[in-house]
Design a protein around this nucleic acid. Sequence first.
DNA 1: CTGACAGATTTTGTATACGAAAGAGCGTGA
DNA 2: TCACGCTCTTTCGTATACAAAATCTGTCAG
Lengths: 239, 239
Amino acid sequence: MVVNPSAPNGSPDSGHATSLAYSTIRDQILSGELPGGHRLREDDLAAMIGVSRTPIREALRSLAAEGLVTHERNRGFQVESWTLKDLEEVYGLRSLLEPYATALAATSGLLDIDALAAIADAMDEAISQPKLDVEVITELNNRFHDAIMEASGNQRLRLLVISVAQVPIVRRTFSQYTPADLKRSLAQHQELVESLRSGDPVWAEAVMRAHMRLGWISTQRRFHGAQLTLMSDSADVEQ
Amino acid sequence: MVVNPSAPNGSPDSGHATSLAYSTIRDQILSGELPGGHRLREDDLAAMIGVSRTPIREALRSLAAEGLVTHERNRGFQVESWTLKDLEEVYGLRSLLEPYATALAATSGLLDIDALAAIADAMDEAISQPKLDVEVITELNNRFHDAIMEASGNQRLRLLVISVAQVPIVRRTFSQYTPADLKRSLAQHQELVESLRSGDPVWAEAVMRAHMRLGWISTQRRFHGAQLTLMSDSADVEQ
DNA sequence: CTGACAGATTTTGTATACGAAAGAGCGTGA
DNA sequence: TCACGCTCTTTCGTATACAAAATCTGTCAG
């Protein structure tokens, strides 16, 4: 399993145990092993990870603040589950934040454009393989976007995008893109590289906005087609 | 002291003790009693609040995820301190998010326009008093903005704005507005009410953008004038 | 006088213990 | 048969205890 491609702000570098619990639980949520609605019993998690309940509780509290789990008094934590409305909110926000960040990145002087181009090329390479490796493609995609967010020079903006975009979407998106949409998406990446290389913030921002829009369209298709893959499998819910 | 005008997402409704610790510490940070850079010793906080270290640690972890405090392994927590660059980032984000939310609110049908107008009028009333009550004005201002964010219909957006805007600015802003700026700000509130009443998203969004810009200008003035009020008092730092 | 080392002290990290609340199961009575 | 209430079990919330890391202090060598 891929570990923690980009952990948000509050990331516990804390104690060994807390940090381990945080990463493990977060990974399992993002990968879908812990489905939405699943109740998180502290004893179970403690036994699974091999630490006591204390670090488990601290990890869960961080995850709650990030919105990945919810907490109710005397009833413990459970994995947040997402509806179409949530996805709509998320894409609305990404469509606002990422183009803005891209415009900033175009003129900040912080962007390593060759590194970005390399990531885009690696993605092209990855989808030309006969058998698509979704993990790899997703990871490259995350790195591509994060490189731009980072080059915006606005650290807080980058963290917001990460926390918004980690809604299970990202990890699963590319497995559901149609081949045509996937190609288009990668073409947009190449155009993002070019626009950023030119240093024109207006162009770069516009391309990113289109890129976000395509993502939203694809996501909607996916959601209507196979809603169950996103929602929790009802059999697993509430044990 | 004002308690928790608007607590973000992860707000521990948790145990009595954890919740109490969270609110207390958060209030003291936002009000400036705990200055930026101040080291937060768990025992001290536990003694002050009258609970054990466990709920203190959980509260601190939530606050860390929200960015109000930082954490370093085996060195504990300390209050985040803000620079002009942080304020610039925050205003950049608010200038993006709040106008967007305002445009949404203009057409969502969720806005109680009369209630909003009442808040704006109450603010007008409050500044016509001979002696300005900054606490009251700030509280009304928070409620005004939050009402619009809520009416955007995008819950996640509202939470982002809260978490971004809670950077000590808001609580202290109105004490430093020049009388002219303060009047202008309240006039903008009235115009926001009118634009929202008309249901024109373009107008409403534009007014909010101007409003944000004025806030930024005022903040810059304040910062250059009296930098020390925002930064931690060096005498108190690191005890 | 300065700097560095060693021991003592403080502070954090984690485990464990205990009380309290919620939930499940069972029996009784209508 | 169904509903109600009681007990028993599970799970959470908090306090406390102990271990590990960091920090402080005082002393001694240079």
